[in-house]
Design a protein around this nucleic acid. Structure first.
Lengths: 269, 269
DNA sequence: CTTGACTCTGCCCTAAGGGCAAACTCTATA
DNA sequence: TATAGAGTTTGCCCTTAGGGCAGAGTCAAG
């Protein structure tokens, strides 16, 4: 029988952590003195705490460690999931690092890329629209091409040049379960289905537009430059931005060749 | 002037986030209605919120974004720091991934590596000891070789075979600012300095020992196997574990060649 | 018996907001 | 002009994995 301090030294964890594991039911002391409340751990609990520490070192959250230890069946399943999470983390950090490098170069270079903002009138268009809820922006960009395929199967004829854009529908912006409407311009309305509706989007008299080259990862930068331009040139955003997908995974393999136009309806300040 | 909802839609962030930034002083609304408390944002605030979002996408914490925006001087400094953090994150995740792969292979293979635990008596030794506080385990392993150099300069003669181990001194285990004592066996006591003391460590009648091959990253596994063995063989840990560094960065370049022995004093249960 | 080391519970804190509730305000329509 | 519905406010509790501290109780050695 070890006191909490002994057990903590043997395993190189703090007593506070052991109390925490007791509270959440991850590792209950073998015996708790009824009168004093002192916790006593037994040697037979060493394998369990060791396994906990091992899994913790792999980055698993404590609740998953708990389920993994209690029902050993899903072990590999949970571990595979953790593998994917780790790979995602690495990917995300590498993306950020890449962005950061570009940003530092941009800061040093001093001269910001020229921003070729164009003012346009967005004409009234008839669009096939699919409204859907995507769990996050990552999957959102996976759905765009599917939308194209679906509409082709319905028989909608796309207008030239290809024109596809998105409207965001949540009253408030949200990070998850985003309600988006994907619109593709068509020549004429067509048979509607449950998923695809046809509607007419009214014209926008003035929109500041900026093209974004490359993968969507750095779309934020384009927004930044466009908003800065809008502000510096005496305009003011008047409505939700639209993203118009000109080239993407559906027609270009190399992400560097993708082309997107961000369009922000504006009015003079 | 935009209401919070408009401003949130334009910038694709939630109103809650804007309120949060107001509270922490990162982005105060241009005007707050005295009577209703409604927040109103102006177009001139777009560049700031855009920059905030950009930096947030790079993974910077909000307080650092604040200082970076307020005193532009340290910009590159903070960003370089963030770069290092990101690289650390990547490194850590890759380590975990590697550990996870090994763990999965071990699970599938079913047969766990044979654990060659040996029982030893740890003799009484005279050691040169340096007691120091290291901020974390990562830097701890950087200090071990320095200790060797220092002691050499003092003129302490190491015993053959080289024998260096560590004792952890905090009453309770802690994750940061760890009070460790690094001991190196010597032939005889020698001139003491402020940093290096000589003392005699009493013998341990029985210790279960397991050698660990390779980098320290997976030292946990060796502890796990050793404790499991101890439990399965009817022993019980009786004192703090020691780590004895047999081969390391000071004499082997390839981490795969490093050799460490974990020693746990035990008694029969 | 005292003293110092150890342990207990409880409370507040972390970062960046999310979720919900109750109350209030704004705007468009009937 | 009245009202409904949408928008906004504050406030409270919640998230991870414990850290820090205070006050009180307990254990073991001299």
């Amino acid at each position: 029988m070890y006191s909490i301090g002994e057990f903590s030294r043997i395993n190189r964890i703090t007593p506070k952590t052991l109390r925490h594991y007791d509270r959440i039911g991850l590792l209950k002391p073998d015996r708790v003195d009824d009168w004093t409340g002192y916790r006593y751990y037994s040697g037979s609990q060493l394998p369990r705490i060791r396994k906990i520490l091992k899994l913790k070192a792999l980055g698993l959250p404590l609740d998953e460690i708990g389920t993994l230890l209690n029902e050993n069946a899903h072990a590999t399943c949970i571990l595979q999931q953790q593998k994917q999470r780790l790979q995602q983390h690495i990917q995300e950090s590498q993306n950020r690092l890449e962005q950061l490098r570009e940003y530092l170069i941009q800061l040093e270079g001093g001269q910001n890329m020229q921003t070729n903002v164009t003012m346009k009138q967005l004409p009234e268009v008839t669009v096939a629209s699919m409204r859907t809820v995507v769990p996050s922006y990552d999957t959102y960009f996976d759905i765009v091409p599917k939308m194209g395929e679906y509409m082709e199967s319905v028989g909608a004829v796309c207008r030239e040049p290809e024109y596809c854009f998105t409207i965001y529908h949540d009253g408030e912006y949200r990070d998850s379960d985003i309600d988006v409407e994907i619109c593709e311009a068509v020549v004429a309305p067509c048979r509607e289905s449950e998923k695809v509706k046809f509607k007419t989007i009214s014209a926008v008299p003035q929109a500041a537009c900026l093209q974004h080259h490359g993968p969507y990862r750095s779309l934020q930068d384009t927004y930044n430059r466009l908003f800065t331009w809008i502000h510096e040139n005496g305009y003011q955003p008047a409505d939700n931005p639209r993203e118009s997908y000109i080239h993407g995974i559906w027609d270009r393999d190399d992400p560097e060749d993708w082309l997107t136009e961000v369009q922000v309806p504006v009015i003079l300040k």
